[in-house]
Design a protein around this nucleic acid. Structure first.
Lengths: 151, 151
DNA sequence: TATTGTTATACTCTATAACTATA
DNA sequence: TATAGTTATAGAGTATAACAATA
């Protein structure tokens, strides 16, 4: 490594790659369904894993509960998500997709899969898997050293 | 690939990895020098490549000129950057680091290098290089297919 | 007292249009 | 007319504190 460049700095590279690769897909769910990033993630979790409450989404998706609260309100207003009271603990709200939400999820999940494949086109399958494994490690609860807690 | 998960979606993985790996370093330049992300990138470019005008930074660093304008104003107010008029074209402003800016750059560049190395600790050097090469390709001016232009 | 979910608030990041002063 | 840089504004993303309702 001769001279250290911004193009050699992993956080910068990751940020640029994340921005570039997100742009087109984000434009799709925005233009087609009026969703923002958190909305799409919440919708995805409910579609992929079935009904759950806000805390469960928060734990699975690493999204703060305040963001989930706002996304759920929006998704409910759009008719994508239905809320049901929990008889055992009335603080909890069971969330699930409506038929319309399910249709949006089916469309978006299929497109996400195709979009992902297109991004990785040209990489041997083994390298693609290795890349994702490294990214999962980097995305884990630590920076260059110690742990971090969800604020 | 059995069931497609958000953890398998490259834009999501990249975003999470970028967030996690940026956090600690961003906290450092924020707490130590009162800088934001764009400020650090502008400072880095001036330190790494020498004096240049705003348009040159914009071209090299993929930062929009409006962001550069604000960062330069801030870096100048902090005494990190000095501006000099261009006799040939008085619209242009030659930017360069002051001694204080140079000291901050030296510190931050060294830390960036060490931070980067720490993030990649555990990866064989060849894999680290391959990772960065893939990220540079993904960060390039295309998403899953066509090109994009700097708005 | 603690937990689930909401509301309020602020800061950061990005995008765009409109402007100025020069050319 | 076109370009270098500035200012204004809005939207999107993130982080925290404080709250109501319930446990």
């Amino acid at each position: 490594m001769a001279e250290f460049d911004l193009q050699d700095f992993l956080p910068y590279l990751l940020n640029q790659a994340a921005e570039t690769t997100s742009r087109e897909f984000a434009a799709y769910y925005r233009d087609r369904y009026g969703l923002l990033r958190t909305d799409w993630r919440v919708l995805f979790h409910l579609g992929r894993y079935g009904g759950m409450n806000a805390a469960a989404i928060a734990a699975r998706a690493m999204i703060h509960k305040t963001k989930i609260s706002r996304s759920v309100a929006k998704l409910t207003a759009k008719g994508f998500v239905a809320a049901a009271g929990d008889a055992d603990d009335r603080r909890r709200v069971g969330l699930s997709l409506t038929a319309r939400g399910r249709a949006a999820f089916d469309d978006l999940a299929e497109r996400a899969r195709g979009y992902d494949a297109a991004l990785l086109r040209g990489l041997p399958p083994g390298e693609a898997r290795a890349l994702k494994a490294v990214l999962r490690r980097l995305a884990g609860p630590s920076g260059a050293d110690g742990g971090r807690s969800d604020p």
